[in-house]
Write a protein that binds this DNA or RNA. Structure first.
Lengths: 345, 345
DNA sequence: CTGAAAGCGCTAACAC
DNA sequence: GTGTTAGCGCTTTCAG
């Protein structure tokens, strides 16, 4: 069998790719020592470490992570699923998380569910096939099968961007219901008497729905009128403009509106401008997200700032700690939010 | 050695995770047949295939991709590097690409370079350790080492979002220089006589720089005055507002400005509003990107629409073809762009 | 069309 | 602190 193997060699590994055995030979040590030098440098004598480093350098050795992963039954990979990559809320979290993990040698496998639990299910299955070090999901809503697979995998699992009881494992986020309450209270404190929540695709975006629910609950608890305008379309700038139009049509008496997110609020701002509606004098507007235009728009947008980057950072820290065997962190981490009062509301 | 192995078994593979050997045994075939049934179902007899499928179902078998990858020296993984995940230009490309690849069983490994070639180098190295099926990079600017590694890896490599000569392998994008020229021509055709390009972080964002260069070249070729306002900050809404302020300060005679991208143009629009500058009467504005607010702002934003999703789609198609052994596609794919004339310019 | 056998390149006991 | 040994779970010749 050694004849064919040699003939085949170039094809299998790329002409120049060297293996750990090559490094070991050049450094005059065993592969175990090379392996240790790579993963726990401090348990190898300085002298050998130097020789090994030189050999690695000379051979331009790149470890084969699949071989390592197979042998150790785990990989330095973290699977993450967000509803949409294009949504800058989540992409900022992904960026912060990915950066921190990459520094420690972990790779992010990214996928988007489009708010579908079936798609999430398929993604989780394909991640699991890689024996990932951990899996990060958005939200608390998962299929039964996803849940079972995750439990059986016995790896750290993080649910993010929400709060609640009994997380699969860890939960890092904030309360959308409280966001809604805070906005309603804010509007009331400003003297608004007829409130509205304007949302889009609320059947899929459960977090937005929750913000709306909190908003309505707080309003009625305070004896204030509150209605919902619900659009079927995805939450975009144009959808916000439409929402504003429908609101004015159907509920002309409303004097303060909480929009599903800043993107929609921006559309509403433009539509108000077009219609000559004075903001905030005639109508108060509040968004969600504190995207960067909120601090620049005319008028400046009152909004709620979620801990976008912080979620990513804290997940990375929690995960890294778990990878080192430290499971002392809290299962549920409430990162809170901030109401940013500007001009629009 | 068999004693400890058995005791260890649960720990290594997760209590319930079955292997291909389990499937083979249950179906009464060899692992080779199971392996074939999984990868090329049509070369296995229908009867065995059925039995195998049932066994897979019953055992909830999930293949170990690392074992498969090790044995075959390749993986169904595609590494992709964008400058920033948060930039919705690239995230839309990533989303389109990822969706199409996921449908065919490929996973995306995502990283962001922050416009740094060193970071790109590190990411490429770590991707290569996974024997990826392909690597996708943004732009044409890479370190020598990155280039060498990519060449040696002998896998499909796509450079995207730009055009040019001698791609590493494949190139899918459009000409930023032509974008700049088109905008300059457009402004001239509207009667503008003093043009400006407003960019941010142009030392890092080489594509924006190129758009600016094309814009200036076309302007001067047409005998029109043209200046550049270059800001050090990252291109954001606030930066656009600052850029507008500086422009008005330093070049009060300018009557048309091309902004690095729509986000900055939006900031400029707000700043004009604050200062009471009439757009387009006193100053024409053009952005780049055609982000969704461009079709809703007041005034509507004239801009250039890059083939954001299309880039992702076409890369997926090209890659999938290559994976099947079809290398007949073009090495360079120019997807063009579209100038969207609206109200602002 | 199917099975047997030989690894893929690394890690993880275990012994020294 | 270091080397030896025995796999990790699959794919891939090669026979039949």
């Amino acid at each position: 069998m050694s004849e064919p193997r040699i003939a085949d060699e170039g094809r299998r590994r790329g002409v120049n790719r060297s293996r750990m055995a090559d490094v070991a030979r050049l450094a005059g040590v065993s592969t175990s020592t090379v392996s240790r030098a790579l993963r726990q440098p401090d348990i190898v004598s300085p002298e050998l470490r130097t020789r090994i480093d030189e050999a690695i350098e000379r051979l331009a050795y790149v470890p084969n992570l699949m071989a390592g992963g197979l042998a150790s039954a785990r990989s330095r990979t973290v699977g993450i699923i967000v509803p949409s990559i294009m949504n800058s809320f989540f992409s900022e979290t992904v960026e912060a998380l990915g950066e921190r993990l990459a520094d420690r040698g972990y790779q992010l496998m990214l996928g988007h569910s489009g708010y579908s639990t079936e798609r999430e299910e398929a993604l989780v299955a394909s991640y699991l096939a890689w024996s990932p070090a951990a899996i990060v999901l958005t939200g608390r809503h998962h299929s039964k099968l996803t849940l079972r697979r995750l439990l059986e995998a016995e790896i750290p699992v993080v649910e993010m961007w929400e709060l609640g009881e009994r997380p699969i494992d860890m939960l890092v986020g904030f309360s959308h219901r409280e966001v809604g309450r805070a906005v309603a209270r804010h509007f009331r404190s400003r003297g608004a008497t007829r409130l509205a929540f304007v949302g889009a695709a609320l059947d899929r975006d459960l977090r937005a729905l929750e913000r709306g629910a909190g908003f309505l609950a707080e309003a009625s608890a305070g004896g204030t009128d509150a209605v919902t305008v619900s659009l079927a379309e995805r939450p975009q700038v144009a959808t916000g403009a439409q929402g504003l139009a429908r609101l004015l049509d159907e509920q002309p008496g409303v004097d303060a509106a909480f929009f599903s997110n800043d993107v929609m609020a921006l559309g509403a701002l433009f539509e108000c401008r077009r219609r000559g509606i004075a903001v905030p004098e005639r109508l108060r507007l509040c968004g969600f997200g504190d995207l960067d235009f909120a601090a620049e728009s005319v008028p400046l947008l009152t909004t709620v700032r979620p801990p976008r980057r912080e979620i990513g950072r804290r997940i990375a820290d929690a995960l890294l700690a778990r990878f080192e065997g430290d499971a002392s962190g809290p299962a549920v981490l409430d990162l809170g939010f901030e109401l940013i009062e500007r001009e629009s509301g």
